[in-house]
Design a protein around this nucleic acid. Structure first.
Lengths: 182, 182
DNA sequence: CCATTTAGTTGCAATTTTAAACCAAATTTT
DNA sequence: AAAATTTGGTTTAAAATTGCAACTAAATGG
């Protein structure tokens, strides 16, 4: 694969698995019910060697499960594991963003609806502990229990996407930043 | 940039903007409050020419806004536009997935909490029209108003990640799939 | 039994990414 | 007010990755 990020950040960690152009299309097809090598290929246009490599990588990382479906043969099924299936919120949030901001309201190309009622699902939002909907400026990012010292410093008092163009002029001088010398 | 996907799929459309290794790290930094070229660079490790290209591309696509902050000078701020800020649900869903499935419970490296209470936000879920939480097998994907004929056929009766290994053996023969000849 | 499909692998050319060097204007330090 | 540094780039060459075509071998289909 591509060079891995090493930061202890869950987004960077995720990008090590899903950070390329094709992988999300493979995941999409899988959510749409595709299980076979050649169908992934037909529906995405990915080259065979890449599909082969990506599937093997994702199987190795527990996102897909590979099952033989011809006795001792050369036919396989690739299915999402529970770990893979739990990408659904990311996938749906991505769909919604693309529909909203690329195609625009009224031009959505797909719709995800509740099967029993036919109603579209709600736009993904951020929900607080008491079920309250939250806006960006009501959120704070803090280091978690697994954070290393660098992350702890870095996140000292970060807000999520704070609007204030003040308050960040000074004070960010003496921080841990092992300079990339490029 | 990388070759663009042409499918009328919101996920593919989104990947045309965010489908590379670095872009999400740039978005992350932006959510964490970074606005300056050199800070993006220090915190992500991306090469200058790539950062330059990516930022220009994202500015061109309305995700970032570039503001001059030195009179007629060479210092700029890059800030998320509303379109960019509305990536938050995708970003947070990605964080949560990475925390859960890469680092694991108890080893989360970041935590996103409600500012006023300090409580962590809820795991992103899929919510129906009446506020009900939905599982994957309660969802259906349908073509939206902007879907072309190919997409309409393709999504004829797709369920999201149906478990049933039956029901997809036959019937997927005569579908529209303009073969990639590779 | 013959043709086709499936799931690959291999090799090469084209494209992208990386890393480093270079640059000019603006700002900071002395 | 010079000198040094920072900022936000561009250019270049080498390294890595991707795309594409050709080839393969087992298993089905008819």
């Amino acid at each position: 694969m591509v060079k891995a990020h090493t930061q202890d950040c869950p987004v960077a960690a995720m990008l090590n698995l899903f950070g390329d152009h094709w992988t999300w299309l493979i995941i999409r097809e899988s959510f749409y019910g595709v299980t076979r090598f050649s169908e992934f290929r037909r529906n995405t246009g990915i080259a065979k060697n890449l599909l082969s490599a990506r599937l093997a990588f994702l199987v190795g990382n527990g996102v897909f499960e590979k099952r033989n479906i011809s006795r001792s043969g050369t036919r396989y099924e690739y299915r999402l594991t529970p770990k893979g299936r739990s990408l659904a919120p990311v996938f749906i949030a991505m769909s919604q963003w693309g529909n909203q901001h690329i195609f625009g309201p009224g031009n959505e190309t797909i719709e995800i609806v509740e099967r029993s009622t036919g109603d579209p699902v709600e736009p993904c939002g951020i929900v607080g502990a008491r079920g309250n909907q939250l806006a960006l400026d009501q959120l704070v990012v803090k280091p978690g229990p697994g954070a290393g010292p660098a992350t702890r410093k870095r996140l000292a008092k970060v807000l999520l996407a704070q609007q204030t163009s003040s308050a960040n002029g000074k004070s960010q001088r003496g921080e841990t930043r092992h300079d990339v010398k490029n």
